[in-house]
Design a protein around this nucleic acid. Structure first.
Lengths: 177, 177
DNA sequence: GTCAGTGCAAATAATTTGCAGTCTT
DNA sequence: AAGACTGCAAATTATTTGCACTGAC
């Protein structure tokens, strides 16, 4: 078991440079513009192993780019996510979806429509909690992220923000369509 | 593999009744009052396998309890969570925490301070994606939820809302202190 | 009767959007 | 030059909080 306690960046300087170049290539190959803002946001995230929030990145970036706006940070992160160049991870402060089912089970999360349903993987009915020094594991939260039946065809990644009952199908990620 | 496609409630009517009684007992044993609102929120969640949001529960509940307020729903859900009577699950629309590390790895989530760090469980370095009919699994997201070293002592569950750099240590869950 | 719990409305937090101007290609 | 991106500020959405009141014990 290897824990990265936020001491070092996820990638070495050289690796980060390489990734920034790859990022530029990706942008160009997809006909998207390479801007200083996009590069800066991408690099700042690659350098920060602490899973920062958009707000935290903005605070750090504005020191070097005072004119940078929050909106750009949000837009850039969304763009990077849609290009699979970064991932969004969930902490405990996730927007509230609740579950009264306390039996060990897992969740199926559709990344297109946001649908959330239960699954039971038999091999995980009674999961062994990994032992990690310096951290008391109380719960193993497993999510299978992918596409539900209805969304298996759709190509775009229009993440539903609030997956309540709302059927606001406006694309957030792909405003170009 | 068993999938619950939201057709039936998680628990049978009888089971829900039993749980509501257990809920009452828990409240009394902890010196917390049993109110119609708390019972209604708990029951509504137990009856809804769709992992509803606070907003969705509120919308459903106010039909039968027109005077119910949103604030009560939020407060009750928080209370139920702190008593381990329900769980909070995360969908894709989680409040943004980002990660540029695309290598397969897992996350350690401290439920007290919200701290998020990387772990690599060797047996999951190259995880086999479960095959589930009617759902295309693209990613296995595993979170080890518990307490980090610093928080292993603290008893209260003061979930950090925005775990940025903010050190707002105001207790949300335990306003009585 | 007491005070924990509620309702209401206002406050805060996080994110999104409209629009006019700017810079990449 | 064209229009994709940006900055700004206002709008939206989700959640929290202060305060006076009410009802569970």
């Amino acid at each position: 078991v290897t824990i990265n306690r936020k001491k070092e960046p996820i990638y070495s300087k050289a690796e980060i440079d390489r990734r920034c170049v790859a990022f530029e290539d990706t942008c160009r190959s997809r006909g998207v513009r390479v801007t200083p803002q996009r590069l800066a946001v991408y690099r700042a995230l690659a350098e920060d192993p602490g899973h920062p929030t958009a707000e935290a990145l903005y605070a750090r970036l504005r020191e070097r780019m005072p004119a940078l706006s929050q909106a750009t940070v949000y837009r850039t992160l969304e763009f990077l996510e849609s290009e699979n160049l970064i991932r969004r991870v969930s902490a405990t402060e996730a927007i509230g979806r609740f579950d009264a089912n306390l039996e060990p089970h897992q969740h199926l999360v559709c990344r297109v429509c946001g649908d959330l349903s239960d699954v039971s993987l038999p091999e995980l009915a009674r999961p062994a909690l990994p032992v990690i020094s310096g951290f008391t594991v109380e719960e193993l939260d497993i999510r299978l992220v992918g596409r539900c039946r209805n969304c298996s065809r759709s190509k775009s990644l229009k993440r539903a923000r609030s997956a309540g009952r709302r059927t606001k199908t406006k694309s957030i990620i792909n405003p170009k369509s």
